[in-house]
Design a binder for these strands. Structure first.
Lengths: 223, 223
DNA sequence: ACCTGAACACCGTTCAAGT
DNA sequence: ACCTGAACACCGTTCAAGT
């Protein structure tokens, strides 16, 4: 086997900014933001830690790039749909993105160097609202309450990694165990009657609040 | 100067769990969660890093304790006030807490070992809603949309550390600088006409969304 | 009894050296 | 031109030793 014959099967294709960023996203998805280390990403790519620095200037720059890739994945509110439909679809798309990439929740709206996909996304949302009759002040209200809710719901209500009611019950048990049984009667009732009931689905819960907010905005726009 | 005479002025009072936790909160307030290291907290207390481990079992245990102190600072919805007033006051109190302790935003609702102040707080909120006529399902809806909004607003809209319009303008300038001037016309208009206008106040913006949500819940409760 | 120094297995990143 | 090993200044935490 000559060295030229092996070229096609090289297990180490050349590094590129895109490959580094993709590997980093994949690793953050499974290991979280704390687990995202330059050394681990390099290991995934079978490269030395220092090799990454040819393609990203440092860990922050890598994170900036990762976030802009995610912004590119959110459904844009384009086309002729009603603003409510467009905002609803965009909210569900963003919620799903944040569920797939939990590490990104606190990073999406705090970039000091927003990338082109980030700017393009926000430009499209604002454009959709403006052309639907929202004035600048109402755009600010709508954006603030919608994104507040979407990111906050992702942060506070989607953290439970359990699929079954049994696992849910076990977790609730662990949380209460250290404390006297009847100190928190309202909380106990709530957990028993609601959270641990089969069929609890965060998607339905998310849409309840989303529609409440969209209806409130519609009333404000008309009034 | 005898050694006994110096006792009263000992610059290193005995360590305690409470002192460790208080120092850690103070340090996180100024240095953020990344800056919160066992070694820095020890330094603040003029102790060796390892001395902290007599009072907290590890960094996670320290954070659990810090969060429960914060829960103890939120105004509880007790007394005979209307549920809407009580929830509004509680939301403003929580928002102010999260503004003072930004490092805590992602930690408050993800504790696997909630402390007594945490449980007590949630018990009081649920109790207030239940006694106002919310059934268990409506409590879930209300809690989900309110806390989603409160934490999400804190996460996405309160991150700007600037007090003056000039600083705001400079930041916006930096963010757009790398990109072609007219690629994002809707965003440009929004930033010019709204964000950079004097008198922009996140407190007013927060209350707009909060009242929209509270009114929506009131309608759902009546309907 | 209470505290802590030395050590270990990690980090991000600089700098100088390899191919 | 492109890549990387050694080194530095940090981490949290274990373990054995100090007072």
């Amino acid at each position: 086997m000559s060295t030229t014959a092996m070229k096609d099967e090289d297990p180490r294709p050349a590094l590129s900014r895109q490959r580094v960023v993709q590997a980093a996203i994949q690793h953050a998805d499974s290991a979280g933001l704390d687990g995202l280390t330059m050394r681990k990403v390099a290991e995934m790519l079978q490269a030395a830690p220092m090799s990454l620095y040819r393609h990203v200037s440092n860990r922050d720059d890598l994170i900036d790039a990762m976030i802009d890739v995610l912004f590119g994945e959110i459904a844009l509110p384009l086309g002729s749909a009603h603003w409510k439909t467009a905002m609803r679809d965009r909210a569900l798309s963003l919620r799903d993105l944040l569920a797939r990439h939990r590490w990104a929740i606190g990073l999406m709206e705090s970039r000091r160097r927003p990338g082109p996909a980030n700017l393009r996304h926000h430009d499209a949302v604002i454009g959709k609202l403006r052309s639907a009759g929202f004035d600048v002040e109402m755009v600010a209200h709508a954006y603030s309450v919608l994104d507040g809710y979407i990111y906050g719901f992702a942060l506070t209500r989607m953290s439970i990694p359990f699929d079954t009611t049994d696992e849910m019950a076990a977790m609730a048990q662990d949380m209460f165990e250290p404390w006297p049984a009847n100190d928190y009667p309202n909380l106990a009732e709530f957990v028993t009657d609601h959270v641990m009931k089969p069929g609890y689905d965060y998607r339905e819960e998310f849409e309840y609040g989303l529609d409440l907010i969209l209806n409130g905005l519609e009333e404000a726009l008309a009034g």
